[in-house]
Design a protein around this nucleic acid. Sequence first.
DNA 1: GCCTAATAGTTAGAGAACCGAATTATATCA
DNA 2: TGATATAATTCGGTTCTCTAACTATTAGGC
Lengths: 153, 153
Amino acid sequence: MTTDSEACAREVLDVVPLVMRTIRGEMRRHRGPELGVPHFRVLAFLSQNPGASLSAVAEYVGLRLPSMSTLVAGLVERGLIARCPSPTDRRRVSLALTERGEARLSQARQAALALLAQQLSALSVQEREQVVAGLAVLRAAFTSAAPPAAAPA
Amino acid sequence: MTTDSEACAREVLDVVPLVMRTIRGEMRRHRGPELGVPHFRVLAFLSQNPGASLSAVAEYVGLRLPSMSTLVAGLVERGLIARCPSPTDRRRVSLALTERGEARLSQARQAALALLAQQLSALSVQEREQVVAGLAVLRAAFTSAAPPAAAPA
DNA sequence: GCCTAATAGTTAGAGAACCGAATTATATCA
DNA sequence: TGATATAATTCGGTTCTCTAACTATTAGGC
């Protein structure tokens, strides 16, 4: 029935913001106000891309450089990430999670995950399979379209 | 394989913010800065629930009453929605799209939809079916948790 | 070797978004 | 009628993000 691109896009436009709102609200409520969604995404990105530049992180998260600079400064102050100049290019900064940052990320992720899992626990096995399959397709579609990649050189 | 709640939640936590970022970025770029995502969601909700109360809209969008009050005031000022007291309960306000609001919504929706559809056009029919099925499940799961329902009276 | 242009990041200032607390107006019920 | 509850708004303050301007470093042309 609804298999054309437009119907699919309509569903995305309806559901994704809905779920996002829930994620944001629930994470805020259960994780305390110390870590917002962008913070979380920065930590997650650095977890998979240690040594990334500020620009790379900013592009991934979807923020401008000044905003990300401030956000990162806050995370450095809290001891969650380390910021040191790159040895090869001293204009650049090299960002990475500290041990405490790793722990904090894992903890926050677990909390958010638990919340989502609870929300999804009422689903049947078949329904969960449908969700996972659908999201996997979406991930591929949207990753290929906006890949910031790591710092080039 | 990956059918438990936690794996499902992990996928949601990964993919939803990714897609959301693309939606936001692309909509901003193509629609001008006059309408943000929450504005859009208000218009969409009112399109399907004309006469809804402020509370209903606020709960649907995930904002508090004061924020939604301000946001709605802006939309009223711009002539996109109409706000009049409910005849049966004069504490309530009855919100609905104006003709201009309908047009504006349709226009914005078409632009966003076109962008998403383009992004999804590379998918196969089967993949699109998977996306639609997965999102339908998610919509149900997250709607049941925060269901404002239509304005009762 | 300089001097210009380009690049990475930070700082400064402004504006928008959001929330909690307090306020107003209306409705409900004892 | 008077006490309580509900719908919405206003107020004050915090946080977030942006653009513009600035500093530091690198790369290229002469």
